[in-house]
Design a protein around this nucleic acid. Structure first.
Length: 302
DNA sequence: CACACGTGGCC
DNA sequence: TGGCCAAGTGT
């Protein structure tokens, strides 16, 4: 008896949620650069790197500059990694720039300069995890995979689980939950993935969701339950940034980005009041490959 | 699995 | 003001 009673809810959800999200997306999608027809797979990969934890609005101008300067993986691979870190500017988490450069080198050396379409090959690239690999496979190549980001996790938590917010992320469970809703057709599946992300980004938002505008409100388990408040473990609160090691790293790297010549360690140290913390931050940057020791001080990597 | 990892905008 | 949040990944 398990089969029918367990499969039925998923089948119903797939028949209701996906078509509604797809129809809504076709009507309401934002015009974003990476959604333009003919946008290259390389552009998709670059945009996904930039979008890892950085808001869309801040990514758009940097992405355009980046692709103008490095229109293919080969172009980026031929530049020093430090140039990538500089061009990354203030997008945050600068090791993403380093990873993107390393990915460009790997693509050039192992994939003939073409961004690979398979999830497994993408996962082997530095800085590419479960989200980015599937996003590229789906949005750049139209393959059928579930794509789960923070927006999708929230939509699923509400619409399917009836919870205000997602619990702790579990890649395996989250992918299975999205897979259960995914249309069979490749193209429909890709649009549904994009639509679920878009829905979470503009309607089913973390704070003040606009449920009146939601295309799946009639199927939403959270709504049916009366919008219960979040219970259970809260996501770990981000540590204070002021005075943190992260801020110290940011100050050091900012100075090196700005300079075309090696910066003496003393000059860097003068930028941070706590000497021990400065030393820790600099050592961490060196360990991450974001800075390199030079005869006359410190520089960005080659 | 928990935590480190930048930066800026919003309420 | 200060906490929360943003198309995650690596360890």
């Amino acid at each position: 008896m398990g089969d029918a009673s367990e499969r039925a809810p998923a089948a119903i959800a797939q028949n209701v949620i996906a078509p509604a999200v797809v129809a809504w997306y076709r009507e309401h999608r934002r015009d974003l650069p990476w959604r333009e027809p003919g946008f290259p797979a390389w552009g998709t990969l670059v945009s996904e790197f930039m979008l890892q934890q950085t808001p869309v609005a801040r990514v758009i101008p940097r992405l355009a500059e980046w692709l103008d300067r490095w229109p293919t993986p080969g172009h980026l691979a031929a530049s020093p990694a430090g140039d990538a870190v500089r061009a990354w500017d203030r997008l945050g988490y600068p090791r993403r720039a380093l990873n993107l450069h390393a990915a460009a080198v790997a693509i050039t050396e192992r994939h003939g300069g073409r961004v690979p379409p398979d999830v497994d090959a993408l996962l082997e690239l530095p800085g590419v995890g479960p989200y980015t690999a599937r996003a590229v496979a789906v949005f750049a190549y139209g393959l059928r995979h579930p794509v789960v980001d923070t927006n999708v996790r929230r939509v699923l938590a509400r619409a399917v689980d009836g919870a205000a917010l997602p619990g702790p992320a579990s890649t395996r469970r989250d992918l299975a939950a999205m897979e259960a809703l995914l249309p069979d057709d490749d193209a429909d599946a890709a649009v549904f993935n994009a639509g679920a992300m878009e829905l979470g980004a503009v309607v089913c938002t973390a704070r003040s969701p606009r449920c009146e505008e939601c295309p799946i409100r009639s199927a939403c388990a959270w709504r049916a339950a009366g919008y219960p408040a979040h219970e259970g473990p809260r996501a770990p609160v981000q540590k204070r940034y002021e005075g943190s090691d992260r801020q110290a790293r940011g100050v050091i790297l900012g100075e090196l980005r700005r300079s075309e010549v090696p910066v003496p360690e003393g000059a860097l140290a003068s930028l941070w009041p706590d000497a021990a913390q400065f030393a820790r931050a600099l050592a961490g940057l060196e360990r991450d490959g974001l800075v390199r020791a030079h005869d006359d001080g410190w520089v960005l990597p080659d």
